[in-house]
């Protein structure tokens, strides 16, 4: 065997290892879009908060309503991001001629959803107890853990995004009360930066 054959063998080994264990079709563009949705959502939330301050003296009830409206915006942003992510990832998978629903996807989703669902339920419970202050740190920390746990099963630097989100969540816990700004950074700015890095390093051909 010549040198070229050895090299080819190593390339083939790497290729099969990646293809059989990692989901390769995650779209970086969907990260950028998710970040933009988050920023737009944050803008609407900010407007809501500012107008709420105007009729501060009317009803205390409307104040709590505002918090539910903001949670509604956050959920809408999350849903829109998931739909966009799904469509773009499906298209990318089609282009690469791979199935979107195989063992690697299942493993990726399972490892992502266990921490995420835990965080979601945790969040709902503390919401039901009226502890709004802790929502931002809790969502950021569990989202970071979900990314970290899923990172083994896909390409890109998802692991680092996860770690950064966890650290940000801990900061949000320490500087309690500024959750809104930490949310904007974690779900808006970080997604755009991460998506852009992924888009320019892995997808531009």
């Amino acid at each position: 065997m010549s040198e070229k054959d050895y090299l080819q063998d190593i390339t083939e080994i790497k290729n099969i290892m990646n293809k059989s264990s990692r989901f390769l079709s995650l779209s970086g563009l969907s990260g950028i879009l998710a970040g933009i949705y988050a920023l737009v959502g944050a803008y609407f939330a900010r407007v809501l908060l500012l107008t709420a301050n105007y009729d501060q003296y009317s009803y205390t009830l409307s104040e709590t309503n505002i918090e539910y409206k903001i949670i509604g915006i956050a959920l809408a942003v999350a849903l829109l991001s998931i739909i966009t992510g799904y469509i773009l990832t499906r298209n990318k998978a089609k282009k690469q001629n791979v199935k979107i629903w195989d063992t690697t996807t299942k493993r990726l989703l399972f490892n992502f959803l266990v921490p995420l669902a835990t965080g979601g339920i945790f969040g709902l419970i503390i919401l039901s107890q009226g502890i709004f202050l802790y929502i931002a740190p809790v969502t950021l920390i569990f989202y970071g853990l979900a990314l970290f746990s899923a990172s083994k099963y896909t390409i890109g630097n998802v692991k680092y995004l996860g770690i950064v989100e966890i650290i940000l969540g801990l900061f949000a816990l320490y500087f309690i009360g500024y959750g809104f700004y930490f949310w904007v950074i974690g779900f808006g700015v970080f997604h755009i930066i991460y998506g852009a890095i992924m888009y320019f390093t892995l997808e531009r051909e």
Partner: peptide, 16 residues
């Protein structure tokens, strides 16, 4: 392992 298929089987089983 000089055969592509055998090399591939082993590669896939190494990481799964």
């Amino acid at each position: 392992f000089n055969n592509r298929v055998r090399l591939g089987i082993m590669s896939a089983l190494m990481v799964n």
